[in-house]
Design a protein around this nucleic acid. Structure first.
Lengths: 197, 197
DNA sequence: CGTCATAAGATACGATACGTATCGTATCTA
DNA sequence: TAGATACGATACGTATCGTATCTTATGACG
């Protein structure tokens, strides 16, 4: 008798063990390599335990990603619009690893339509607020006009970043945000904040 | 002897039969339901025949989508920027079916990194040109300034549309482009075409 | 402290699809 | 008409799915 204690985890403890296993499988095999059987094996539990909690692989992965979100912006706000915008976009692109991008893509492909929005939010939860901080600071510095930036304009920037991450190769060249910042985003922000004629 | 002639298709004829079967399976079962076995069955051929041509399901589906691209813009250009932009975005959103969106999402999740850009191009091949036509017409009508619209600005618009299709529920409410057109895109285009100070 | 509902964990199941190997032969080319 | 090609059929072992069944550790409650 080598092992005497057949410990049995429950609830929160078990759930956390499952999440860690999901992340480990994700790191080792990528999204496509995550399976109920593999996760159960690694977490030293069984498939029914997983199926009681998650209805699909996508469900499981989304859940495991929750503690993986970013709580703080990747760069400090200086008040210089172009600098701050570039730092924010480049910083986000830098802190999201190729593996994370692959996971996002996998989730887009597999999650049920009803939860697609949650996928978008995964690592972008606070981006719109951080953009708001940037534009507020630029306005305070006199770089932008007095009109508040419409939410639609901020969402355009979020879309640009997310789109770039999804549709660009992660290996090879880094994303180049300079062109879009100079050629589109900064002019857009100036235009929408210009005082009414 | 019921059937006397065991006809055997080859090359182009066979390929076209395969493509049609892929589209049929796609329509019937959705992207997730497309399998090598199912396609082979429907096309009355065999798996090895498919594997000789395609290395993955994503490969197969991308190939089958080729003749499915759109060659003409969904609306005529009037010269009124806001109207044309809205018509183009809404028109694209309308002609891309929920099933097509599901296929796009599936492809994003499964295609190998090296071909991710092809996925983006699938139904958006000419969108950037059509946008250029719209801005050219607006410039000709005096609605935009003399500076040519930078490609980066047009790509922002493409990103907005693609992003909206991917991350919004297809069922339920139609995408609302009015807010983004008025609150971001039109001001952006005016700003980038303004004559240099 | 004993009872009991709960759920963990193990196992097994049929079904499905994977990707590959093998083989006979229809079809095209020269 | 000979030879190369590759279609079409079949079968294989493996992997994973999602579910059913059963035992038993665990914690709540009396």
């Amino acid at each position: 008798m080598t092992d005497a204690t057949p410990r049995r985890r429950r609830d929160a403890e078990l759930l956390e063990a499952i999440r860690e296993s999901v992340r480990a499988e994700l790191a080792e095999f990528g999204f496509a390599g995550v399976t109920f059987e593999g996760v159960a094996r690694r977490a030293q539990t069984s498939k029914p335990v997983l199926y009681r909690r998650f209805s699909s692989r996508a469900d499981m992965v989304i859940d495991a990603f929750i503690p993986h979100r970013f709580a703080t912006p990747p760069a400090a706000v200086t008040g210089d619009l172009r600098t701050d915008l570039l730092a924010l976009l480049n910083g986000m692109a830098a802190r999201i690893s190729p593996a994370d991008v692959a996971t996002m893509r996998g989730l887009i492909g597999e999650v049920d339509e009803a939860h697609i929005e949650r996928v978008g939010a995964l690592t972008f939860t606070h981006l719109e607020e951080w953009l708001r901080d940037v534009t507020d600071a630029a306005a305070a510095a006199g770089e932008l006009g007095p009109t508040p930036v419409p939410a639609a304009a901020l969402r355009v920037i979020v879309a640009v970043l997310r789109h770039e991450l999804i549709f660009s190769r992660t290996s090879g060249t880094e994303p180049q945000f300079a062109a879009v910042v100079d050629g589109a985003l900064v002019p857009m922000l100036r235009a929408v904040t210009a005082p009414p004629a």
